[in-house]
Protein backbone atom coordinates (compact mmCIF):
# COMPACT_ATOMS: atom_id res chain seq x y z
CA UNK A 1 0.00 0.00 0.00
CA UNK A 2 2.59 2.51 1.10
CA UNK A 3 4.90 1.83 -1.85
CA UNK A 4 2.10 2.59 -4.30
CA UNK A 5 1.08 5.81 -2.62
CA UNK A 6 1.46 8.91 -4.80
CA UNK A 7 4.04 11.55 -3.88
CA UNK A 8 2.80 13.79 -1.10
CA UNK A 9 2.22 16.86 -3.27
CA UNK A 10 0.03 15.19 -5.91
CA UNK A 11 -3.20 13.20 -5.81
CA UNK A 12 -4.09 9.81 -7.25
CA UNK A 13 -4.46 11.42 -10.70
CA UNK A 14 -0.90 12.70 -10.38
CA UNK A 15 -2.04 16.31 -10.18
CA UNK A 16 -1.16 19.01 -7.68
CA UNK A 17 -3.75 20.82 -5.64
CA UNK A 18 -3.06 23.99 -7.66
CA UNK A 19 -4.73 22.38 -10.69
CA UNK A 20 -8.01 22.26 -8.76
CA UNK A 21 -8.08 25.97 -8.08
CA UNK A 22 -9.78 28.55 -10.22
CA UNK A 23 -9.99 32.27 -10.74
CA UNK A 24 -10.14 34.53 -7.66
CA UNK A 25 -13.62 34.80 -6.26
CA UNK A 26 -15.69 37.93 -6.92
CA UNK A 27 -18.17 37.15 -4.13
CA UNK A 28 -18.29 39.08 -0.84
CA UNK A 29 -15.58 38.45 1.74
CA UNK A 30 -16.87 35.91 4.25
CA UNK A 31 -19.51 34.49 1.89
CA UNK A 32 -20.33 30.89 2.71
CA UNK A 33 -20.07 30.04 -0.97
CA UNK A 34 -16.32 30.73 -0.90
CA UNK A 35 -15.92 28.20 1.89
CA UNK A 36 -17.87 25.65 -0.13
CA UNK A 37 -15.58 26.33 -3.11
CA UNK A 38 -12.56 25.59 -0.93
CA UNK A 39 -14.14 22.37 0.36
CA UNK A 40 -14.95 21.42 -3.23
CA UNK A 41 -11.33 21.99 -4.29
CA UNK A 42 -10.21 19.69 -1.50
CA UNK A 43 -12.81 17.04 -2.33
CA UNK A 44 -12.08 17.11 -6.08
CA UNK A 45 -8.35 16.88 -5.35
CA UNK A 46 -8.76 14.09 -2.82
CA UNK A 47 -11.09 12.15 -5.07
CA UNK A 48 -8.63 12.55 -7.96
CA UNK A 49 -11.04 13.94 -10.53
CA UNK A 50 -9.60 14.26 -14.06
CA UNK A 51 -10.11 17.96 -14.92
CA UNK A 52 -10.84 17.34 -18.60
CA UNK A 53 -13.68 14.97 -17.70
CA UNK A 54 -15.24 17.39 -15.22
CA UNK A 55 -18.20 19.42 -16.45
CA UNK A 56 -18.95 22.32 -14.11
CA UNK A 57 -22.58 23.32 -14.58
CA UNK A 58 -24.56 26.13 -13.01
CA UNK A 59 -27.59 28.35 -13.40
CA UNK A 60 -27.74 32.01 -12.42
CA UNK A 61 -27.05 33.73 -9.11
CA UNK A 62 -24.17 34.14 -6.66
CA UNK A 63 -23.81 30.37 -6.26
CA UNK A 64 -23.80 29.86 -10.00
CA UNK A 65 -20.78 32.11 -10.40
CA UNK A 66 -18.62 29.79 -8.31
CA UNK A 67 -17.71 27.20 -11.00
CA UNK A 68 -15.27 29.83 -12.27
CA UNK A 69 -13.45 29.66 -8.93
CA UNK A 70 -12.30 26.04 -9.04
CA UNK A 71 -10.65 23.68 -11.56
CA UNK A 72 -10.01 26.39 -14.11
CA UNK A 73 -8.88 23.81 -16.63
CA UNK A 74 -12.27 22.09 -16.81
CA UNK A 75 -15.13 23.03 -19.10
CA UNK A 76 -17.78 25.12 -17.38
CA UNK A 77 -21.29 26.14 -18.33
CA UNK A 78 -23.04 29.00 -16.61
CA UNK A 79 -26.51 28.56 -18.14
CA UNK A 80 -29.83 30.29 -17.63
CA UNK A 81 -31.66 30.78 -14.35
CA UNK A 82 -33.08 27.56 -12.95
CA UNK A 83 -32.39 25.50 -16.06
CA UNK A 84 -29.02 23.93 -15.27
CA UNK A 85 -30.55 20.45 -14.78
CA UNK A 86 -31.69 20.26 -18.40
CA UNK A 87 -28.30 21.38 -19.73
CA UNK A 88 -26.58 18.88 -17.45
CA UNK A 89 -28.91 16.13 -18.67
CA UNK A 90 -28.10 16.84 -22.31
CA UNK A 91 -24.37 16.99 -21.63
CA UNK A 92 -24.32 13.66 -19.81
CA UNK A 93 -26.35 11.95 -22.53
CA UNK A 94 -23.96 13.28 -25.16
CA UNK A 95 -20.85 12.18 -23.28
CA UNK A 96 -21.43 9.60 -20.57
CA UNK A 97 -17.76 9.83 -19.52
CA UNK A 98 -18.23 13.34 -18.14
CA UNK A 99 -18.50 13.87 -14.41
CA UNK A 100 -21.32 16.34 -13.97
CA UNK A 101 -20.98 18.76 -11.07
CA UNK A 102 -23.86 21.19 -10.78
CA UNK A 103 -23.77 24.23 -8.53
CA UNK A 104 -27.07 25.92 -7.82
CA UNK A 105 -28.59 28.16 -5.24
CA UNK A 106 -31.83 28.27 -3.31
CA UNK A 107 -33.52 30.65 -5.77
CA UNK A 108 -32.11 28.80 -8.76
CA UNK A 109 -33.34 25.46 -7.36
CA UNK A 110 -36.41 26.07 -5.24
CA UNK A 111 -38.03 29.00 -7.04
CA UNK A 112 -37.38 29.50 -10.74
CA UNK A 113 -35.84 26.06 -11.19
CA UNK A 114 -38.12 23.91 -9.06
CA UNK A 115 -39.58 22.03 -12.03
CA UNK A 116 -36.24 21.09 -13.52
CA UNK A 117 -34.90 20.16 -10.06
CA UNK A 118 -37.78 17.72 -9.56
CA UNK A 119 -37.40 16.13 -12.97
CA UNK A 120 -33.63 15.84 -12.65
CA UNK A 121 -34.17 13.78 -9.51
CA UNK A 122 -36.96 11.79 -11.13
CA UNK A 123 -34.64 10.80 -13.99
CA UNK A 124 -31.77 10.06 -11.56
CA UNK A 125 -29.16 11.69 -13.76
CA UNK A 126 -25.70 10.74 -12.54
CA UNK A 127 -24.46 14.05 -11.16
CA UNK A 128 -23.59 15.94 -8.01
CA UNK A 129 -26.05 18.75 -7.41
CA UNK A 130 -25.09 21.28 -4.77
CA UNK A 131 -27.56 23.84 -3.47
CA UNK A 132 -25.61 26.70 -1.92
CA UNK A 133 -28.49 27.67 0.30
CA UNK A 134 -28.61 31.09 1.95
CA UNK A 135 -32.37 31.66 1.91
CA UNK A 136 -32.13 34.86 -0.09
CA UNK A 137 -31.29 36.45 -3.41
CA UNK A 138 -27.84 37.98 -3.13
CA UNK A 139 -27.30 39.47 -6.58
CA UNK A 140 -30.56 41.42 -6.46
CA UNK A 141 -29.83 42.62 -2.92
CA UNK A 142 -31.41 40.31 -0.44
CA UNK A 143 -35.02 39.36 -1.25
CA UNK A 144 -36.34 36.15 0.33
CA UNK A 145 -36.04 32.89 -1.55
CA UNK A 146 -38.31 29.87 -1.24
CA UNK A 147 -36.02 28.10 1.23
CA UNK A 148 -36.30 30.93 3.76
CA UNK A 149 -37.95 29.65 6.93
CA UNK A 150 -41.38 30.83 7.97
CA UNK A 151 -40.86 33.77 10.30
CA UNK A 152 -37.26 34.45 9.30
CA UNK A 153 -36.52 38.17 9.21
CA UNK A 154 -34.77 40.20 6.50
CA UNK A 155 -32.14 42.79 7.26
CA UNK A 156 -34.66 45.63 6.95
CA UNK A 157 -37.18 43.85 9.15
CA UNK A 158 -39.55 42.15 6.69
CA UNK A 159 -40.76 38.81 8.01
CA UNK A 160 -41.15 35.78 5.74
CA UNK A 161 -44.85 34.83 5.74
CA UNK A 162 -44.59 31.70 3.63
CA UNK A 163 -43.73 28.09 4.34
CA UNK A 164 -40.26 27.11 3.20
CA UNK A 165 -39.52 24.51 0.55
CA UNK A 166 -37.20 21.90 2.02
CA UNK A 167 -35.07 20.79 -0.94
CA UNK A 168 -33.89 17.69 0.96
CA UNK A 169 -37.34 16.53 2.03
CA UNK A 170 -38.62 17.16 -1.47
CA UNK A 171 -35.72 15.24 -3.01
CA UNK A 172 -36.36 12.19 -0.83
CA UNK A 173 -40.07 12.37 -1.62
CA UNK A 174 -39.25 12.42 -5.35
CA UNK A 175 -37.09 9.30 -5.11
CA UNK A 176 -33.65 10.90 -4.95
CA UNK A 177 -30.89 8.34 -4.47
CA UNK A 178 -28.46 10.47 -2.43
CA UNK A 179 -29.54 13.33 -0.20
CA UNK A 180 -27.32 15.15 2.27
CA UNK A 181 -27.37 18.42 4.13
CA UNK A 182 -24.35 20.23 5.44
CA UNK A 183 -23.01 23.62 6.42
CA UNK A 184 -20.45 25.72 4.56
CA UNK A 185 -18.52 26.11 7.80
CA UNK A 186 -18.20 22.37 8.43
CA UNK A 187 -15.56 21.08 6.00
CA UNK A 188 -14.96 18.04 8.13
CA UNK A 189 -18.49 16.89 7.38
CA UNK A 190 -18.88 18.36 3.88
CA UNK A 191 -15.70 17.06 2.18
CA UNK A 192 -16.42 13.34 2.77
CA UNK A 193 -20.05 13.90 1.76
CA UNK A 194 -18.88 15.53 -1.48
CA UNK A 195 -16.55 12.65 -2.27
CA UNK A 196 -19.33 10.17 -1.59
CA UNK A 197 -21.57 12.20 -3.90
CA UNK A 198 -18.94 11.98 -6.66
CA UNK A 199 -18.76 8.22 -6.14
CA UNK A 200 -22.53 7.74 -6.18
CA UNK A 201 -24.07 6.78 -9.54
CA UNK A 202 -27.23 8.84 -9.70
CA UNK A 203 -28.40 12.26 -8.64
CA UNK A 204 -26.63 13.27 -5.43
CA UNK A 205 -28.24 16.30 -3.81
CA UNK A 206 -26.30 18.29 -1.23
CA UNK A 207 -28.14 21.15 0.43
CA UNK A 208 -25.34 23.22 1.94
CA UNK A 209 -26.45 26.02 4.22
CA UNK A 210 -24.22 28.91 3.24
CA UNK A 211 -24.85 32.21 5.04
CA UNK A 212 -25.06 35.40 3.01
CA UNK A 213 -22.85 37.74 5.03
CA UNK A 214 -24.20 40.83 3.30
CA UNK A 215 -27.96 40.29 3.32
CA UNK A 216 -28.89 37.40 5.61
CA UNK A 217 -26.48 37.07 8.53
CA UNK A 218 -28.25 39.10 11.18
CA UNK A 219 -30.31 38.51 14.30
CA UNK A 220 -33.66 37.01 13.34
CA UNK A 221 -32.36 35.24 10.24
CA UNK A 222 -32.49 31.44 10.34
CA UNK A 223 -29.67 31.19 7.78
CA UNK A 224 -27.05 33.20 9.71
CA UNK A 225 -23.74 31.73 10.89
CA UNK A 226 -24.80 32.07 14.49
CA UNK A 227 -28.22 30.49 13.99
CA UNK A 228 -26.89 27.57 11.96
CA UNK A 229 -24.11 26.81 14.45
CA UNK A 230 -26.59 26.86 17.29
CA UNK A 231 -29.22 24.67 15.61
CA UNK A 232 -27.04 22.26 13.61
CA UNK A 233 -27.81 18.68 14.65
CA UNK A 234 -25.45 16.31 12.87
CA UNK A 235 -26.66 12.74 12.33
CA UNK A 236 -23.22 11.33 11.74
CA UNK A 237 -19.57 12.13 11.41
CA UNK A 238 -18.63 10.86 7.94
CA UNK A 239 -15.40 9.44 6.53
CA UNK A 240 -14.83 8.69 2.87
CA UNK A 241 -12.71 5.66 2.01
CA UNK A 242 -11.55 5.61 -1.61
CA UNK A 243 -11.90 2.47 -3.73
CA UNK A 244 -9.23 -0.07 -2.85
CA UNK A 245 -8.12 1.72 0.29
CA UNK A 246 -8.13 -0.25 3.50
CA UNK A 247 -10.69 0.51 6.17
CA UNK A 248 -8.46 0.75 9.22
CA UNK A 249 -10.64 2.46 11.79
CA UNK A 250 -11.85 0.44 14.74
CA UNK A 251 -15.33 0.95 15.91
CA UNK A 252 -17.79 -0.56 18.27
CA UNK A 253 -20.50 -2.61 16.54
CA UNK A 254 -23.58 -0.50 15.87
CA UNK A 255 -21.78 2.82 16.08
CA UNK A 256 -20.85 3.10 12.42
CA UNK A 257 -22.91 2.64 9.27
CA UNK A 258 -20.62 1.46 6.45
CA UNK A 259 -22.11 2.05 3.02
CA UNK A 260 -20.38 0.75 -0.08
CA UNK A 261 -20.89 3.09 -3.02
CA UNK A 262 -21.23 2.11 -6.68
CA UNK A 263 -17.55 2.62 -7.57
CA UNK A 264 -16.38 0.40 -4.71
CA UNK A 265 -15.58 3.24 -2.34
CA UNK A 266 -17.15 3.48 1.11
CA UNK A 267 -18.65 6.13 3.26
CA UNK A 268 -18.33 5.39 6.95
CA UNK A 269 -20.95 7.17 8.99
CA UNK A 270 -20.00 7.36 12.67
CA UNK A 271 -23.39 7.60 14.20
CA UNK A 272 -24.18 10.48 16.47
CA UNK A 273 -27.84 9.52 16.42
CA UNK A 274 -27.52 5.80 17.18
CA UNK A 275 -30.92 4.96 15.73
CA UNK A 276 -30.42 6.63 12.35
CA UNK A 277 -30.26 4.44 9.23
CA UNK A 278 -29.29 6.40 6.11
CA UNK A 279 -30.73 3.72 3.83
CA UNK A 280 -34.22 3.98 5.33
CA UNK A 281 -36.23 6.33 3.13
CA UNK A 282 -39.28 6.65 5.33
CA UNK A 283 -37.10 7.13 8.38
CA UNK A 284 -35.21 9.85 6.58
CA UNK A 285 -38.42 11.65 5.68
CA UNK A 286 -39.63 11.39 9.26
CA UNK A 287 -36.36 12.81 10.56
CA UNK A 288 -36.46 15.73 8.12
CA UNK A 289 -39.97 16.62 9.28
CA UNK A 290 -39.45 16.04 12.99
CA UNK A 291 -36.20 17.98 13.23
CA UNK A 292 -37.73 20.90 11.34
CA UNK A 293 -40.69 20.92 13.70
CA UNK A 294 -38.25 21.02 16.63
CA UNK A 295 -36.42 23.96 15.05
CA UNK A 296 -33.31 21.88 14.45
CA UNK A 297 -31.18 21.95 11.32
CA UNK A 298 -30.41 18.32 10.66
CA UNK A 299 -27.16 17.66 8.75
CA UNK A 300 -25.35 14.59 7.47
CA UNK A 301 -26.16 11.90 4.92
CA UNK A 302 -29.93 11.80 5.15
CA UNK A 303 -30.57 9.10 2.60
CA UNK A 304 -28.72 6.95 0.10
CA UNK A 305 -29.80 4.20 -2.27
CA UNK A 306 -26.96 2.52 -4.14
CA UNK A 307 -29.18 0.11 -6.11
CA UNK A 308 -31.11 2.46 -8.39
CA UNK A 309 -30.71 2.76 -12.16
CA UNK A 310 -29.31 6.05 -13.41
CA UNK A 311 -30.47 7.74 -16.62
CA UNK A 312 -27.59 6.62 -18.82
CA UNK A 313 -28.20 3.00 -17.82
CA UNK A 314 -31.93 3.35 -18.25
CA UNK A 315 -31.42 4.74 -21.76
CA UNK A 316 -29.10 1.76 -22.45
CA UNK A 317 -26.53 4.01 -24.12
CA UNK A 318 -23.58 2.46 -25.92
CA UNK A 319 -20.24 2.71 -24.13
CA UNK A 320 -18.82 5.13 -26.72
CA UNK A 321 -20.07 8.62 -25.97
CA UNK A 322 -22.82 9.59 -28.44
CA UNK A 323 -20.78 12.72 -29.20
CA UNK A 324 -18.07 10.56 -30.76
CA UNK A 325 -20.27 8.56 -33.14
CA UNK A 326 -19.86 9.35 -36.83
CA UNK A 327 -21.65 8.75 -40.12
CA UNK A 328 -20.83 5.05 -40.17
CA UNK A 329 -22.32 4.52 -36.73
CA UNK A 330 -25.38 6.64 -37.23
CA UNK A 331 -26.57 6.44 -40.83
CA UNK A 332 -28.46 3.41 -42.00
CA UNK A 333 -27.14 1.31 -44.89
CA UNK A 334 -27.99 1.99 -48.52
CA UNK A 335 -29.87 -1.32 -48.61
CA UNK A 336 -31.99 -0.43 -45.61
CA UNK A 337 -32.60 2.98 -47.11
CA UNK A 338 -33.79 1.51 -50.40
CA UNK A 339 -36.18 -0.77 -48.50
CA UNK A 340 -37.45 2.13 -46.43
CA UNK A 341 -38.16 4.18 -49.55
CA UNK A 342 -39.95 1.25 -51.19
CA UNK A 343 -42.17 0.81 -48.13
CA UNK A 344 -43.10 4.45 -47.78
Amino acid sequence: MASNAPPANVNIAGLSREIYKGLPTTLCAGCGHNSITNHLIKALYDYGVQPHLLAKMSGIGCSSKTPAYFVERAHGFNGVHGRMPSIATGAKLANRELMILGISGDGDTASIGLGQYCHLIRRNLDCTYIVEDNGCYGLTKGQFSATADLGSVLKKGQKNEFEMIDVCGLAIELGATFVARSFSGDGKQLVPLLEAAFAHRGTAVLDVISPCVTFNDHEGSTKSYAYVKEHDVALQSPDFIRTGAEIVVDYEPGTVQDIELEDGSHILLRKIDREYDATDRIGALRTVHETRDRGELVTGLLYVNTHATDLVARERLVQTPLARLGEDDLRISRDDWAKLMALA
Binding site: R83, I87, G90, L93, G115, C118, H119
Partner: peptide, 27 residues
Protein backbone atom coordinates in the same frame (compact mmCIF):
# COMPACT_ATOMS: atom_id res chain seq x y z
CA UNK B 1 -27.49 -0.87 -26.42
CA UNK B 2 -28.65 2.28 -28.11
CA UNK B 3 -26.88 4.89 -30.22
CA UNK B 4 -29.45 7.53 -29.35
CA UNK B 5 -31.28 9.07 -26.44
CA UNK B 6 -34.73 10.58 -26.69
CA UNK B 7 -36.07 12.29 -23.59
CA UNK B 8 -39.65 13.38 -23.20
CA UNK B 9 -38.99 16.51 -21.19
CA UNK B 10 -41.15 18.13 -18.51
CA UNK B 11 -41.69 21.17 -20.75
CA UNK B 12 -40.18 22.93 -23.74
CA UNK B 13 -37.79 24.89 -21.51
CA UNK B 14 -36.15 21.64 -20.48
CA UNK B 15 -36.36 20.14 -23.97
CA UNK B 16 -34.29 22.88 -25.56
CA UNK B 17 -31.99 23.01 -22.52
CA UNK B 18 -31.16 19.34 -23.05
CA UNK B 19 -30.48 20.05 -26.70
CA UNK B 20 -27.92 22.74 -25.87
CA UNK B 21 -26.33 20.62 -23.14
CA UNK B 22 -25.92 17.80 -25.63
CA UNK B 23 -24.49 19.92 -28.43
CA UNK B 24 -22.15 21.68 -26.02
CA UNK B 25 -20.79 18.23 -25.17
CA UNK B 26 -20.44 17.41 -28.87
CA UNK B 27 -23.53 15.46 -29.89
Amino acid sequence: QRKFAVIQAEDELAAIGMVFGATWAGA
